[in-house]
Amino acid sequence: MMQKRTSLAVLLMLPLWAQAELKALDDESLASVTGAGFGLVIEDFLYDGTNATITINDITNSTGQNVPISVKELYVGATGSNKGSNLNPVDIGRLSYPWTLDLVKGENLKTFRDDGQLVQTLPTNLSVLSFAAPSKIFGAGGQACVSGFAAAGNNCSMRSTEKVDAGVRFDFNVTGSRTDVINMDFTELTMDGSYLRLWGDTARQQLVGEARINLYAKTLEILSCATGTSGCTSAQEQAARTIYFTNTYAQYALGYGKSQPLLFDVTSNGQFVLELPNPVAGISNSTTRNQVAADFYANAPRTNILIDNLNFGGTRASATAVPTGGYNFGRNEISGLSFNYLKVSSHDL
């Protein structure tokens, strides 16, 4: 019956003309269409690799033997996970401050300097592929980058519920019988203001870029043994083998598009090279040199690493409290680090 009715309906519709009309977009509507790329948000995200065996091979010791690295206890979830034992989903990114993938002109991709000023770091009239974490907010709406630690800034966009707990354990099978362990657990981790930008440099005929990796975390604990194994069971034994970071952040800046792009390269004889060239190399005119250098010192992003409290072997009264006991190394900080020149290359042994 249903089929018959459908066929009849189709037959009846055939002689009729569709009344819907296509309309040209007017100038006003067209003007609102901008090629600003995509926003990405992951709603209710949870990653748990506990039941998978991930192995990293081909890293060899001095005698050329493979040292397999087992990647265990890899997880990402909401804060309050108690080192991954109580995993809950978390939103990665916000609808108003999403992760983004854009192809834009260099002059349209502005960057926040540490003082909150928006500056252009990329050459003008050049198409740049940009992959960026949620942007920073200088002004109203800014969130604490590290909760309860004002020195990390109040200019992040992720709220406390959008930060994540993440962890990983690496087992280095150094020899058949010996295994070295590094177990890392972050709480309240966020990456606001990070980005990777790539473009083609015509003069160098190669792919170049600039990257900024910002990591803010309330705590980071590095444990050097496998929990539950001999000598690593009681809270006291584990504490004795733990390095505690509290209120910590790292802002790595690699490259400044205008005068010091990051060069990713493999040489013609098959070796990997990572280079940050001298910003004023090859400029003979002294006035231009001074201008380029002044611009570099004023606007190029700097690398900062800060650990508000570093402690070996203490114990925390609560999950995020500064540890007591053990060896307190206090506050450690590297700030305003700028690379004038950097070249890292691989060599066959």
Binding site: L40, A52, I54
Partner: peptide, 16 residues
């Protein structure tokens, strides 16, 4: 990689 990995969530993609 061997074994089962738990990955849950919704990736939301939209023009920005």
């Amino acid at each position: 990689i061997d074994g089962t990995v738990r990955v849950q969530g919704n990736v939301l993609i939209f023009p920005k």
